[in-house]
């Protein structure tokens, strides 16, 4: 930009159609590249600047607020059909910084950095004083509930043996004393009924994922587990233009996409992981 010719960018309104189109393309990219946690939906566009790109196109620099939905990352349900996690369920928000190229009327993401944070305990308590709050994903009771629920699933499976991929949510319910947990599973090459050493079971090359919700209730002299799982159809690998730029390290605990599971320790909400990690 020649000296004295202005800032070199324009600032459309955050609710302009062009801004919203760029933001929706950005959120779509985030969800297409999520490997952990839940899909997010656009909540508010905080800031936008549009830079001319040489020789062609424009680059939208966006700051977006998102909210976690109830759809697991690999759930093929269209985002429009995914319910937003409500405050009484302990909502989770995402803060994203995105760069989206618009060229020939098409949007493609150049850069993405997101960080997710659960709502404060005070906010949840304001609308629901007795609702269970999110627990740490490595909480002993949460881990035990997921493992017990998965054991119940495998005990009843007349097909594949399933392995735990990640625990995505956990809540400790005081009355009745119970633990609510949501977790992802994947089918292995073992038959559930014939497994002797689960450690030898390998995830199928064409991964078959499932998502489970379970409640483990503490009873006198034992415990009872109720679990429901949804298995997803095998998804074709999404072919997406990938960013040229390296994605800087997120301030949030981020999980490597290649890792089989997110860290057990860390905040209750998994960090959003988008784009190729460098």
């Amino acid at each position: 930009v020649p000296v004295g010719s202005g800032p070199g960018y324009r600032e459309p309104a955050c609710d302009d159609l062009e801004t919203e189109q760029a933001a929706l393309a950005a959120v779509d990219y985030i969800n297409q590249n999520l490997r952990h946690g839940y899909k997010h939906t656009l909540n508010q566009i905080d800031k936008v600047r549009v830079w001319q790109r040489r020789p062609f196109g424009e680059v939208y620099h966006l700051e977006l607020d998102t909210l976690e939905t109830q759809c697991y990352a690999r759930d093929p349900t269209p985002l429009a059909n995914c319910s937003v996690r409500q405050v009484f369920e302990h909502a989770v928000e995402g803060d994203c910084e995105m760069q989206v190229l618009k060229q020939d009327g098409q949007f493609s993401v150049l850069f993405a950095k997101c960080h997710s944070t659960p709502d404060s305990q005070e906010d949840v308590r304001k609308v629901c004083p007795h609702c269970p709050l999110l627990a740490l994903l490595n909480n002993t009771k949460v881990v035990h509930a997921a493992e017990a629920a998965l054991a119940a699933v495998n005990a009843q499976s007349n097909g594949s043996y399933f392995k735990l991929l990640e625990i995505s949510r956990g809540q400790l319910v005081p009355l009745p004393a119970s633990t609510y947990v949501e977790f992802a599973v994947a089918a292995t090459d073992c038959v559930a009924a014939a497994v002797t050493d689960p450690a030898t079971c390998k995830l199928l090359a064409e991964k078959k994922h499932g998502f489970c919700k379970a409640t483990l209730t503490e009873k006198l002299g034992g415990e009872e587990v109720a679990v429901t799982c949804t298995m997803f159809q095998t998804q074709p690998v999404a072919v997406q233009p990938q960013p040229d730029a390296a994605i800087p390290a997120s301030p949030a605990p981020a999980a490597d996409q290649a890792a089989p599971a997110p860290p057990a320790a860390g905040p209750p909400a998994a960090a959003l992981v988008v784009g190729p990690m460098v």
């Binding site: 600032e11 459309p12 309104a13 955050c14 609710d15 801004t19 919203e20 939906t41 656009l42 909540n43 508010q44 566009i45 905080d46 800031k47 936008v48 607020d65 909210l67 937003v84 405050v87 909502a91 928000e93 709502d119 404060s120 906010d123």
Partner: peptide
């Protein structure tokens, strides 16, 4: 006292360009 209705009126109608609307709820 004289007023400047054009200025006051237009200032009241123009929404702030950013941030945009909240689609669900703010936390």
């Amino acid at each position: 006292k004289g007023a400047q209705p054009g200025v006051a009126g237009s200032a009241g109608l123009v929404p702030p360009p950013c941030p945009g609307r909240i689609r669900h709820f703010k936390i």
